[in-house]
Simulated assay, not measured.
Amino acid sequence: MQADLIEDVLYGPAQMLGGSQLEDGELIELAREEFEGQPFCIVRNWMVLDLLLTEAQEREVRKQGHQPTVLFINHAVFDSESRIPAGDCFIPGYQKDFHGCFFESKDKLYILAGRGARKHVSVPAISALHENLSWPVR
């Protein structure tokens, strides 16, 4: 069952999205200038996941000033705080803001590079990713 959930998240149909087309070095330089003092992370191979929550769960998430959406990062390129190793896979917290190629969680701005995707997923699917693939939730 969990394998099916994971396969659906990773390989099931999704809406394709485009992130920044700049090279990694250009993105790092630009982000350092534009977001000075704000922690940021450049990522590739990403997916915006809209969580299918109960009304009560969604209300609680929104009450905290967030959206019921997370970002699945398959490849971290650069972290301005050097806390996330290059190549790391993880899921940061709920979305605070999302515009174009910028996804902001509670603690960090994620700059989405290259192509990505967006899809709806269940909480059990996110849990299966976390449990079986040992990806930290940051």
Rank of each mutant, 00 (worst) to 15 (best):
E34R: 13
I28W: 10
R118Q: 12
L5V: 09
A113V: 00
D107A: 10
F102H: 10
L5M: 15
V43G: 07
P39S: 11
D24L: 11
R118V: 06
H130C: 11
T54P: 04
V70N: 04
L22M: 15
Q38R: 10
L52T: 12
G93C: 09
Q64L: 15
A31T: 11
V61I: 13
P68H: 02
L5A: 12
P68Y: 02
E104H: 00
D50W: 11
E36H: 11
D97T: 03
L53N: 05
E36S: 12
F103N: 00
E58R: 04
E104I: 01
G100R: 08
L52E: 13
P13A: 13
F103Q: 00
I126V: 15
Q21W: 06
N132S: 12
R44L: 04
C41W: 05
P39C: 06
V48D: 02
C41A: 13
L112Y: 01
A3I: 13
K63C: 01
K63Q: 05
A76Y: 02
E36K: 13
A31E: 07
E104N: 00
S122P: 10
Y110N: 00
L27P: 03
L71V: 03
Q2F: 07
H75N: 12
A56E: 15
H130V: 14
R138W: 13
K106P: 00
D24G: 06
E7R: 13
D4M: 14
D50L: 10
R59H: 11
K96D: 04
N45W: 03
E26D: 15
C89V: 02
R115E: 14
E23G: 03
D50C: 08
Y94E: 07
V121R: 06
N45R: 10
A117K: 13
I84Q: 00
A76T: 14
D8S: 14
F72H: 11
L49G: 05
D79W: 09
S80D: 06
L112S: 01
E33V: 08
P92N: 02
L52D: 15
K108F: 01
Q15E: 12
Y94T: 07
S127M: 15
S134F: 14
D4H: 14
N132L: 12
L10R: 08
V48I: 15
G12N: 14
L5T: 09
K63F: 02
L17R: 15
V9F: 09
H99C: 09
F78G: 08
S20C: 04
D107T: 11
K63A: 11
D79P: 11
S122Y: 08
I91W: 03
R138S: 11
E104W: 00
T69M: 06
G116R: 02
H130K: 14
A31S: 15
G65I: 04
L17V: 08
S20P: 00
V9H: 09
L109Q: 04
H120R: 14
K106I: 00
R59M: 09
F35H: 12
I111F: 00
R138T: 12
S20T: 09
E34I: 08
E104T: 02
S80N: 03
N45D: 13
K63V: 01
I28R: 13
E60D: 14
W46V: 00
A31M: 14
L22F: 11
E81P: 02
H99E: 13
G37N: 07
M47Y: 09
E131V: 14
H66K: 08
